[in-house]
Computed example of a mutant assay.
Amino acid sequence: MRIAVVGAGGVGGYFGTRLAVAGNDVTFVARGRHLEAIRRNGLEIRSPLGAVRAPAGSAVASISELGPVDLVIVAVKLWDTDDVAKQLRPAVDRGARVISLQNGVHKDTILRRHLSDEAVLGGACYISAFIQEPGIIIHNGTLQKVVFGDYQREQTPLAQTFLAACRTAGIEAEISSDIERLIWEKFVFLVGLSATTTAIRQPIGVVRAHPRSRALLRDLMAEVVAVGQASGVSLDEKFADDRLTFCDTLPAGMTSSMHNDLEHGNRLELPWLSGGVVELATRTGISVPRNQAVADILAPYELGRPPRD
C-alpha cells in the first residue's frame, strides 16, 4: 500500500514504521528535529517486540509534498486536526481515504467538516509509545492494536487491504462493523486513564491502588458512559466497571500521553478529553462533576506549563 502518516509521534511513528518495514510505501509528515532525524537516519522503534527502523529519507515537511497515496493515517495532536483536514482535500480528491488514530470522539467529526463522509474510516488504536528523542520511538509493553471500519458498516476493499497490510506487519488488527461504538468504548477508558494519571501525577498502578483515587477513576468513566448513551451510542450500563477491571490488568507503570505532556510542559489535549466530556454533557443535559473538576484542575496547564511570577 501507499500510505502517508501525518504525525510521526508515538502512535503514527510506531504503526507507520511497522508498515514500512513490511514492504509498504510509507511517507511520514513530520516537523523540526524529528523530521531531520528521520531524513538522516530513518525512524527507529525500540520495543519489547523487537527493534525496527523505517528507511532514511522517508519523511516530508508538509502534506503538500506527498505523492499519490491509498491511505492517510492521521496521528497529530487534536488541536491540529482542523488544519490537517483542510490540507488533505487534494489527496482525497485523488482517491485517498483517511483514518484517524487520534484520541477522543471529536476527531472524525472534525475531519468530515472538510472531507466527504465516504473518505473517512473510523479507527482506534491501543498502544503506549512516545518519542524518546528525535528519530527514536519507545514502545512501552507489548500492546499494539488497531481497529477500524467504515461508518457505513459495509466494509470497502480498502479496509480489507489495510487489514492484510497490518497483519503482515505484525500489528494486531481487526475490522469493526460498529466503529462508532468502539471509538466511544476506547474514549471511556482513555478519559479515565488520562484524567487520573495527569491530575494525580502518577501512573495507573498508584491510581488503582488507593480506594479514593480508584473510585475517581471509575466515576470518571461512568460519566463518559452516561454522556455516550445520551448521545445515542449503545454503551453497556456496566461498561465503566468492565474498564475498571481492565485497568487492573495494565502494567503498574503505565501512564497516559496527557500525563507525559504535562510532565514535559507541553500543551494538553484536555479540551477533547475531560473537557470534551464536559462539552458533550452540556449539549445532552448530563451532569459530569468528576470530569468538570479534572478539567478545572488542569486548565492552567492546557497550553503548556504556566509561567511563574
Rank of each mutant, 00 (worst) to 15 (best):
L49Y: 08
T255M: 12
Y126G: 07
E172Y: 11
I200E: 04
C125D: 06
E118K: 08
D80E: 11
G32F: 03
I73Y: 00
D83H: 01
E174C: 13
M221S: 10
S213A: 14
R290M: 14
A159H: 01
A281F: 09
A30T: 02
N140W: 11
G285T: 08
I171R: 03
V224S: 10
Y151K: 05
N24C: 10
D80C: 03
G232N: 07
A91P: 00
S213H: 09
C247K: 02
S287E: 13
I127R: 02
L190Y: 04
N41A: 14
V188D: 03
D25H: 07
G32Q: 07
G265R: 05
A230Q: 07
V288F: 11
G141Y: 12
S194H: 09
L143K: 11
I110W: 01
A222Q: 14
L49E: 12
E133C: 03
V69W: 01
P251Y: 05
R290V: 15
A240Q: 06
P90V: 01
V5K: 02
D309H: 13
L220F: 11
S128N: 13
I127A: 09
F246S: 10
S62G: 13
A281D: 07
W184R: 04
R167V: 14
R212V: 15
H34F: 06
V278Y: 07
A165F: 02
G123W: 00
A281Q: 08
A91T: 00
T161W: 01
G9I: 12
F28C: 10
D25M: 04
Y301S: 10
R39K: 13
R46N: 08
A230R: 08
E154M: 03
V29A: 06
R290E: 14
I183E: 09
T198P: 05
Q202L: 13
G275R: 05
E65L: 11
G141L: 13
E185F: 07
D241K: 04
